[in-house]
Write a protein that binds this DNA or RNA. Structure first.
Lengths: 203, 203
DNA sequence: GTTTAGTTTAACCATTTGGCAAAATTAATA
DNA sequence: TATTAATTTTGCCAAATGGTTAAACTAAAC
């Protein structure tokens, strides 16, 4: 038989993701997840023994989404400036679709840092190729001397802060004008890339 | 008579600040705060009727500390580049002394955004003078066209992300080498300012 | 018709917030 | 100094919250 509707497990995972993303582990309630999924609390435990296990089931995916995939773009055969534009553009697009992701990851990063470091290491992500790519640009005199770490920290910081600080930016700087905030984010897709490219340029 | 030791209220506030900063409202426990203060749990309720009230008592101060004081520097009579250096330098110094502050504020900003927007508005902070200052630089052709909002969002994002992302940067990029992380932050005091100044320069 | 997976109801129980009255301490007054 | 009043602190417990489990029920599969 064809399952036309989502399986219970999927429904739970989706509900859990929604609630955990919004409230964080400490703020989330099993009851709220059950309500969101349209089932009862006990069923959550039938599928995922505990709150912790349920959380783990959604966390890895969410966290992986959070990490920008730098390496792929960095080793591709396009000019350096285009690489920056591509990474920033894709990353901000992802953030537009998952605006709660940064706050969620940051919160959990503070709660269980070791667990998350272990997760990154497990994935085998390796910044070495991207690092060498950047250092070659530096050596060739194409960009100012800067370590890969500083560069990537700058890039991510510039991309995520508008999402992290949304309440302040939208509520205070834009007097709760949602459209103004959205326009602001859209502007940043090119503005941030240009900002970085300009900052890296040698005078 | 001279009170050589801190009053009970101060001790409680300090303990509360420490625990709330680390764990957030949802993660903090009254018992833990009492332990930290070396007093009885009931005494917390005697001084501050509820967890909410105790939280409010520490929040405003913490939040105000988080906001960089831009206006003061912006209207001062020094070259624009020096203003950027001053703001970034002071802000990173403050973050070095209060490394948990950004995550704390971000977490609570997500939990009760309205409350915090109201708080900012209450303080009467006004970005207008700083805004005009920046727009004059733009009009005079000293820097590229950029809105004050984009500029300040860039600046804050560049400053706070290394603190927010510390576990990843220190644990993953620097293989848990604390000294390397600290050196990295120190480098950023000048690097971030230079990065911004360079990015704003017209070619 | 028996077994099994999925689901619900109901309850349990640990944790945590918060209230209250008594005890202890400090300050004020006779 | 003794007494009284006010403040601070403690121990204890009520109430609520929230994660977890047990038991019962349903429906599908064999």
């Amino acid at each position: 038989m064809v399952e036309q509707e989502l399986s219970t497990e999927k429904v739970i995972l989706e509900a859990a993701k929604k609630v955990f993303l919004d409230k964080g582990f400490d703020g989330a309630r099993m009851q709220q997840i059950a309500d969101e999924a349209g089932i009862n609390k006990a069923l959550l435990h039938y599928y995922f023994r505990s709150k912790d296990k349920l959380f783990d089931a959604i966390f890895e995916g969410a966290f992986m989404q959070f990490l920008p995939n730098i390496s792929q773009v960095m080793v591709s055969d396009i000019p350096f400036a285009e690489k920056i534009r591509a990474i920033v553009g894709h990353y901000i697009d992802m953030l537009l679709e998952n605006p709660y992701l940064p706050v969620f990851v940051i919160r959990e990063l503070q709660r269980t840092p070791e667990k998350i470091i272990a997760l990154i290491k497990k994935t085998g992500i390796n910044p070495e190729s991207a690092n060498q790519m950047v250092q070659k640009e530096v050596a060739d005199g194409k960009i100012i001397p800067i370590s890969f770490t500083h560069l990537i920290v700058n890039l991510i910081g510039l991309c995520i802060f508008p999402f992290i600080g949304r309440p302040i930016i939208e509520g205070f700087m834009f007097n709760s004008d949602k459209d103004a905030y959205h326009k602001f984010i859209m502007e940043r897709k090119t503005l941030v890339a240009d900002f970085i490219i300009n900052a890296l340029q040698i005078k």
